[in-house]
Simulated assay, not measured.
Amino acid sequence: MSMTIRGRRFSVLFMGLGLHAAGAIAADAEPPASTMAAGPTFFAANDNEHFNTRRTGVDFFPSLQAQDAATGLRYRHHEFSQDGWSRSGEQLALAARGPLAAGIRTWQLEAGAMSQGGHTLLTADGSYLLPIAKGTSAEFFINRDFVETRTALDRGIHFTFVGGSLEHQPHPKVTLIGTLGYQDFSDDNHRRHARFRAVFQPDLDLGLTFQYRFRHYDSTPNETRRGYFNPERYQENMLLAGWRYRYSGWVGSVLAGAGTQSIAETPSGPSRLLEFGLSSPLAGQQRLDLRAGYLRTASFGGPDYQYRYVQANWVIRF
């Protein structure tokens, strides 16, 4: 899953285990009665640097297949603003997803183009899950997008992020996940990422999880002024607790974490995470998914970056 803080796609790759589990349970309950689906989407975020992001759009899947597999179109209108500056962008993409297997999406891919401020970029967001053995699987991912800061958007700076992870369950209650990734920026910057996550479920029916997360990256030295935060080395350790609950078809989840982060040679500082999720039951062939969260961690915005977001997806099946 997954890895910038600004932007929906990387936050999913990076933070989404507890919320993904809730969505998977909801998807398993869907009856295969519809043949197509469409619906609006909304995303809003702001941070302690007064950078605001808004995304509105619509998804259209003309043909739903077995186990929720589908292919369709995705449109997004982007709005960015900060202290009197503003910028808008348009994005159109082909979106495809494979079938669910035990509530887990086997593959998904979004490929298209985004235009903003006179810059046009071919964008991509995809992942592929490869089972290796019982309790062991590998996942490969790719993400290509603009860097979302004022200066980076003005310059058209973008990145391509590729990598893979290995997941292993040594015990039904314990899951270990290791991830390696390489992030190439259009301004000749490069980042090498390493992450590790350990998840413990004390009771498989309780919906409670405890997690430990570690992430590290090193970047090309900041020889010239870049349009985003770029430490030569970054490291974070975090402990988290998550809980999901299902009632009458509704699925709710919460994930909270606290830890420390260190940047190059500076002293360690705090990092925090709090996320909520709520998915409605399938009522009249409709479903509403809501997400909200708060993050305090180093990102493109700086070493003490604080970020808040809300997200809503409404799916109507025909």
Rank of each mutant, 00 (worst) to 15 (best):
Q82S: 11
G98F: 03
G7K: 02
Q311H: 09
E49M: 11
A22Y: 01
S248C: 04
Q311A: 10
E30D: 10
S165I: 02
G302Q: 03
G156M: 06
S63W: 12
T209E: 11
G227T: 07
A256D: 05
Y212A: 12
Y212N: 06
T260A: 10
P31K: 12
L295K: 04
E236R: 15
E110L: 09
A194T: 12
R76F: 13
A66Y: 00
S299M: 04
H216A: 05
E232Q: 14
G156T: 01
T149S: 04
R225V: 10
G16C: 02
L208F: 11
D218G: 01
F196A: 15
F10W: 13
A113N: 08
H216K: 11
T179Q: 15
L239M: 09
R105C: 08
H190N: 11
F51H: 08
G72Y: 02
Y305K: 05
D47F: 00
N237F: 05
A44G: 14
A101V: 13
D28K: 14
V162N: 07
D125T: 09
P62N: 06
F159E: 05
W85M: 11
S88E: 11
Y294Q: 10
E90G: 09
A24P: 05
N230H: 10
V174M: 11
L92A: 13
G118M: 04
F214C: 08
P32Q: 10
S219V: 02
G112S: 01
D188L: 10
N189P: 06
L121T: 05
R215G: 14
V199Y: 03
A96L: 11
H171N: 15
R272A: 09
W85C: 04
L239F: 13
M1N: 08
T56L: 13
S127L: 14
L129P: 08
Q82A: 05
E79M: 08
P267C: 07
L121F: 09
S86N: 10
S271E: 08
Q82L: 05
T53H: 01
A102H: 06
T160K: 07
A37L: 08
L121Q: 03
M238I: 04
I25F: 03
S115K: 14
W85I: 09
P303F: 11
R155K: 14
R105E: 15
F318L: 11
M238K: 07
G252D: 01
F43G: 03
D145Q: 02
L121Y: 00
A96Q: 01
D125G: 14
R226Y: 04
L13K: 14
W250P: 08
G23S: 10
F229Y: 15
F300L: 12
F140D: 02
F51R: 06
G126Q: 05
